[in-house]
Computed example of a mutant assay.
Amino acid sequence: MLQASADIDTSEALTERQKAVLDAALRLLVEEGDNLTMTAVARRASCSKETLYKWFGDRDGLLTATVQWQASKVRVAPVDGKGLGLASLTASLERFASDWLNVISSDTSIALNRVAVGHAGSGKDNLGAVVLENGRFALARRLKPVLEAGRQAGLLDFSDAETAFRSFFGLVARDVQIRLLLGDRLELTEATIGGDAARATQQFLALFGAKTGPQGL
């Protein structure tokens, strides 16, 4: 799950040094959860707090950038709407599903989401809103153009892109994320994730694939 800002390709916008700092922040979230501080991140990343404030603003800004960095690992393969075929659409959806499953099953995402859930409604900070805006909502904004391209190419048939996205998201996620958050040790190997991504994509295409001809041929 994961993601202050409008959608950007975080992996392109950040320097290598900034990425290393955000990786350090993610490791601290795994180890310390709610106790993440600018001082601790500066110490772990071997940089000054002044640098952190310059780059990210404050703790909320750092958390936002951390979520964005984690969410950027879910790639959305670009598609050519004019020449889009079923194979390339399927490949793009499978890659998205596979990346997302890899991200949400990582120790860093599990720790980040546990902290966000614990803060939701507590008034401590807006981490829950940050995770929603830069995680699930940002991923929807990135994948919907692919779904729209599929519809324009006559490969998909849906009336609302948000509904289609939610259906795909649900097919990919199933109960995996909630089980991970509750401590279930799922065996999510590369092969398992690849199979789950392919299955979810085929189920989505069965639900939303455009039908032609009187018998759908």
Rank of each mutant, 00 (worst) to 15 (best):
1 M>C: 12
17 R>T: 12
45 A>K: 06
43 R>C: 02
149 A>H: 15
64 T>S: 15
119 H>L: 11
130 V>S: 13
101 L>V: 07
173 A>F: 03
101 L>I: 05
171 L>H: 03
117 V>P: 01
74 V>Y: 02
124 K>M: 07
136 R>I: 07
144 K>M: 15
8 I>L: 15
198 A>D: 03
123 G>I: 07
178 I>D: 04
93 L>E: 02
29 L>T: 02
106 S>G: 11
33 G>T: 00
79 V>Q: 08
86 L>T: 01
186 L>H: 06
182 L>N: 14
55 W>P: 00
178 I>N: 06
23 D>L: 11
100 W>G: 03
56 F>A: 13
71 A>T: 05
160 D>H: 14
104 I>R: 09
31 E>N: 13
23 D>R: 14
10 T>W: 14
70 Q>N: 09
199 R>A: 09
106 S>N: 08
117 V>D: 09
39 T>H: 12
181 L>Q: 05
150 G>L: 09
96 F>N: 05
162 E>P: 02
70 Q>C: 05
9 D>G: 05
165 F>I: 07
71 A>N: 11
77 A>C: 11
180 L>F: 06
63 L>V: 08
54 K>V: 12
147 L>D: 05
202 Q>M: 02
18 Q>L: 02
63 L>Y: 11
48 S>F: 03
52 L>C: 06
145 P>Y: 01
130 V>T: 13
144 K>C: 09
126 N>R: 13
43 R>E: 14
143 L>T: 02
108 T>W: 08
176 V>D: 03
1 M>I: 11
8 I>M: 12
100 W>P: 00
33 G>Y: 04
80 D>H: 14
21 V>P: 03
167 S>L: 08
199 R>H: 10
210 A>N: 04
24 A>S: 15
76 V>S: 01
142 R>T: 02
82 K>M: 09
168 F>T: 07
35 N>P: 00
180 L>V: 00
39 T>A: 15
173 A>L: 11
141 R>V: 09
63 L>S: 07
214 P>S: 09
168 F>E: 06
48 S>V: 04
213 G>Y: 03
37 T>D: 14
191 A>M: 01
12 E>T: 12
182 L>F: 07
111 A>W: 06
59 R>V: 10
167 S>M: 10
4 A>F: 08
204 F>L: 05
179 R>E: 04
7 D>F: 12
122 S>N: 13
42 A>F: 13
140 A>K: 13
86 L>S: 14
111 A>Y: 02
113 N>W: 06
119 H>N: 11
72 S>V: 02
164 A>H: 06
86 L>F: 08
185 R>P: 04
107 D>W: 00
144 K>F: 07
37 T>P: 12
192 T>G: 08
95 R>K: 12
139 L>I: 07
30 V>E: 13
180 L>T: 03
